[in-house]
Each structure stands twice: as structure tokens, then as C-alpha cells.
Amino acid sequence: MIIILDETVTEEQIKHVADKVAQLGLQTSISRGTYRTVIGVIGDETKLQSAPLAAIPGVAEVLPVMPAYKLASKQAHPKPTIIEVGPVKIGGGHLAMIAGPCAVESPERMESIAKSVRAAGANIFRGGAFKPRTSPYSFQGLGEEGLKILRDVGARHGMPVVTEVVDPRHVDLVCEYADMIQLGARNMQNFVLLTEVGRTNKPVLMKRGMSATVQDFLMSAEYIMAQGNSNVVLCERGVKGFDPATRNTFDVALVPQIHKLSHLPIIVDPSHATGRPELIPACALAGVAAGADGVHIEVHDKPEEAMSDGPQALLPQQYAELMDQIRKVAAAVGKQIG
């Protein structure tokens, strides 16, 4: 940590700041410039997190050298982390192809969709049993019945399953059925839920909040990791923009940025990012080309009958065609679909 002092700081104030740091068991290195004096702090910065150094007279600014998201940072773990979801690997050159309907529906419908996406090359099946909806009158999911359907269909087709948890009280229940827990955009900063999920040993797919900065995103991952669960996969699903032409604004630049700052894998979700089926293929390919560790796409065999987000789902044939294109781009950037 670096403590920048005021231009008018006195020698007595400099000594007072140094003494305060020393009381915390840390060392100081004082550098006197022409206009500013800077105190470098050497040691465990976590001891300073609760110390109000900026309130000490003479202090202008306190700057951390290490990022606040220490566990999620690349400094903590220089090599890319590979997350295992059943037999599927995510990160380190391995791509997760997550596909399925927005919401879990009837067993027959789920069976039909799972069969088609599995044949196309998807390796993780998705579907929401608990649905956080903007309107309280919209379909909220089938609950535990939906979890059972998802689990049974995934097992029959040899695919691990991922589903969303929206309530801390449901974490244990979802863990009974799911191979991977999803945290939606609305819950990215639900810190109680993040803490509960962090206490599990399940891989976590965390979507970026609709207005979240890169630091917000990584700090939410830090919440999970601080509880002992380091199996976090990040997901770019678009942020709120001013243009209603698309559902959200797809921030493909986030992918290489996350890889520069963190060791955690990151996938893209062009379905929620655009909300328009005709834009999904191009955005999915752009994500893989930018270095994404997977693609999350909503697929439905009869979108007009879907119980949630039907208009943004690809048809099975469209998904199969896209998978053929993704394989080519993946090969070009040195990645593979397990």
C-alpha cells in the first residue's frame, strides 16, 4: 500500500503516520520528493483494511498496490484456473458449451431439447427451476419438481446440469440436484447469497450484474472465494445501455480484460446480451475469438410455447449450425470443446 501525503505535511505528521502503521506490525519506507512525500507500507495489507489511514492528518490519499480482489487476482494465481463440472473442464483451453431452455418445462420438452443440444455438441445442460422475474405475475419456475426433471434429463444424456439459485434458503436444495450453481445478474451483489454459495463445494457460474464494473464483478467472485469455494466461472451477459435496439450491450472486451486481471475462467452469454436470435451467432463467435472459455446459449424447440424468454432462444437446428462454426473458431484460437 502507498500513502500519499499532503504537500503541506509536517515532520510531526509524517512520524505520526509511520507510527500508526508500525503499531499494526508493518514496516514503512518514506520517500521524499520535490512536491510530495510518499510512505510505502511493507507487509500484510489485510491488516490495513479496517484502519482509517485516510483520516489521519496530513494524509492525502491511500492507494492499494494489490487489487482488492486478492483471491481472484492473477497475482494470487498466475496460471489460469480450470474448473471441473462433472467430466467437463472449463478454462485453460477447454470450452464449456452450455445450452438449454430458459426455464425447466415438462419432462417431454426437456428431453427433446437435451437430445438435440447434446447431438450438436453441448456439454452442460441448463434450465431454471427458480426464476427471478421482473413481474410478480410471470412464471416463477417449477421449484423442486423442475430440479428433478433437470437432473433426470441431464443424467440420461450424460450432461452435467446447471441451474440458478435465487434464495439463500434454497442453496442446499439446489446442491442436491445440480452439478453447477448459477447466480444471475440480479443477484451478483446479493452478498448473503454469495456467502452461502461460497460455503458449498459446487462449481459456481456467476453472471455479471447489469450495471457492474469489472471491479464489482471480481469483488463478487471474491465473496464466494473468501468462504472457501474457488470454483467460480464468470459470465458476461451484457450490461444496461442506452440503445433499445438490443436487450443489453454485449461487452466482449470484458473477456480479455478479465483474463488479464484474474485467473478465473469467463464465458459469454449472447442470448441475454442481445435478446435477438439473429445476433446470437455473431456475438458467440466474437466471444470465443476474444478468448472466452465457453458459450451459454438458450435453445428451445418451440420458442412460441416457451414459458420464459422464448423470443431470444435459438432453434435446435440453428444451434447445431452455430456449434459447427464455434468449433472452427475454437480450433483457430487453440481451444477445444470437451
Rank of each mutant, 00 (worst) to 15 (best):
I83K: 02
K74L: 15
I3L: 09
R186N: 09
T46R: 15
Q325I: 00
D301S: 15
A292M: 05
T213G: 13
I337V: 14
L264C: 04
P203A: 04
T213V: 04
E7A: 04
V17Q: 08
V161P: 11
E45G: 00
A330S: 14
E7C: 03
E305I: 02
D251S: 01
K74T: 00
S271H: 11
I14K: 12
V59Q: 05
K89R: 15
G58K: 03
L142Y: 15
H272G: 08
T10V: 10
L279F: 14
V299R: 12
D44V: 04
T134V: 00
R169Q: 12
T200S: 03
V65A: 07
V153S: 02
Q182G: 01
I258K: 08
T163I: 02
C283N: 08
L285P: 04
P316Y: 06
P311W: 13
S230A: 11
K131R: 15
G238Q: 01
A330P: 08
V161H: 01
L285G: 06
A273L: 08
V165F: 06
L24M: 13
H94K: 08
V38C: 13
S116Y: 04
Q318P: 03
K47S: 03
G146T: 09
Q189L: 00
V166S: 14
A68G: 06
A76P: 08
P64V: 00
E145R: 15
P281N: 11
G92H: 03
A60L: 15
I82G: 04
H170N: 14
A290T: 06
I42E: 12
H272K: 08
E84M: 08
G127E: 04
P256A: 10
V38E: 10
R133E: 10
F191H: 13
E108I: 11
T37K: 10
D179W: 07
K207C: 07
R156S: 09
A282I: 05
L147I: 14
E278A: 09
I90A: 03
S271T: 15
G334N: 07
G287E: 05
A292Q: 05
T134M: 05
L142S: 00
V162C: 02
A290F: 05
D301K: 12
E144S: 11
K74D: 00
I83T: 14
L5D: 12
Q257C: 10
A22T: 15
S116H: 01
S73Y: 07
V21R: 01
F125A: 01
V171K: 13
C175N: 07
V255P: 03
P303F: 11
R151A: 13
V65N: 02
A245E: 09
V161T: 15
L53E: 08
T34S: 14
Q13G: 03
V41W: 02
G93T: 02
A185R: 02
I39W: 08
A72P: 01
Q312V: 04
G158R: 09
D152F: 08
V288N: 05
A282N: 11
R237T: 07
G143H: 05
H170R: 06
H272P: 07
M188Q: 15
K207E: 12
E7I: 03
S50W: 12
